[in-house]
C-alpha cells in the first residue's frame, strides 16, 4: 500500500527526530548486552524440590496431577480417561503409540477442518517443557503436541510431561526455547480462567476447562 509506505517513512523519520542520530547495529547490540540482568536465572532447588513445586502450582490451578514411570503411562492414561468418562480423544500426529490404551478411541488431527477436533471429548498431548515456579506447560507445533487448535477446542486436556523437561524459572525456559523461537508456541498454566467478574477466579471459559497432567519420572 502506497499510503502505508508513506506512513512508514514518516513514522521512522519522526522517531529519528525524537531520538537523535541512529546508532549502528553493532553498537545497539553491545548496548542490549549491557542491560543489567541480575534477576534469578537458574534453579535454586533440587530435582525433587522442582517436581514438588510444579505439582503444587498445578494443583493451585485446579489441575489433576499424577506421577508415573515411563512403562506405566498407558495404564494411567486409561485409568484417568475412564474416571473422567472420556471415550473419544483427539491426538496430534507423533503422539507415542505406547501411551494409548486400546479401550479409548483416538482421533488423529489431520490439520484440516477443525470440526473433528471440536467433536472430541478431550485431547492427549505431550509437551515441549514445563516451568515449575509458575506451573506452566509449553506446547509447540511439534510431534506429539500439534497445531494450536488441537489443545484449544476440546474441553479437556490430558498432558504428559517428561519430568526431565521441567525447569524452575522462566529465564531457563526461554533459554531452552530460543532455538525454536519461530515455532508457534503456547504457554498454558492450568485450565482457562477469568477473574473479570468481581475479581473472582473462575476456572474454565473458552479453552479447556479441565486439565490433568501426568509426569513421567525415572
Amino acid at each position: 500500500m502506497a499510503n502505508s509506505l508513506e506512513a512508514r517513512t514518516e513514522i521512522l523519520r519522526r522517531i529519528r527526530v525524537a531520538t537523535g542520530k541512529s546508532a549502528n547495529a553493532a553498537a545497539i547490540e553491545a548496548e542490549w548486552k549491557a542491560i543489567q540482568r541480575d534477576y534469578k536465572l537458574a534453579a535454586s532447588v533440587d530435582r525433587e524440590g522442582l517436581l514438588h513445586q510444579f505439582e503444587d502450582r498445578l494443583r493451585d490451578y485446579d489441575a489433576g496431577v499424577y506421577r508415573v514411570t515411563a512403562d506405566g503411562v498407558r495404564a494411567l492414561v486409561g485409568q484417568i480417561l475412564a474416571e473422567r468418562g472420556k471415550q473419544t480423544m483427539a491426538v496430534p500426529a507423533g503422539i507415542p503409540s505406547e501411551w494409548l490404551p486400546s479401550e479409548v478411541t483416538f482421533v488423529e488431527d489431520l490439520r484440516g477442518d477443525v470440526s473433528p477436533i471440536d467433536a472430541c471429548e478431550g485431547v492427549l498431548t505431550s509437551a515441549t517443557l514445563a516451568i515449575a515456579e509458575t506451573g506452566t506447560i509449553v506446547l509447540q507445533d511439534a510431534p506429539g503436541e500439534g497445531r494450536r487448535a488441537v489443545t484449544l477446542l476440546p474441553d479437556y486436556h490430558l498432558c504428559v510431561v517428561d519430568a526431565a523437561k521441567i525447569v524452575q524459572t522462566v529465564p531457563e525456559a526461554m533459554a531452552r526455547l530460543q532455538a525454536t523461537a519461530h515455532v508457534a508456541t503456547t504457554f498454558f498454566s492450568g485450565p482457562s480462567a477469568t477473574a473479570d467478574i468481581e475479581m473472582t477466579r473462575i476456572k474454565g471459559v473458552h479453552g479447556p476447562r479441565f486439565v490433568d497432567v501426568i509426569l513421567i519420572v525415572a
Partner: peptide, 11 residues
Amino acid sequence: ERMNPYNSIWT
C-alpha cells in the same frame, strides 16, 4: 497470577 493462563507466541 504467577503466569497468565495463556501466552501465545506466533511468527
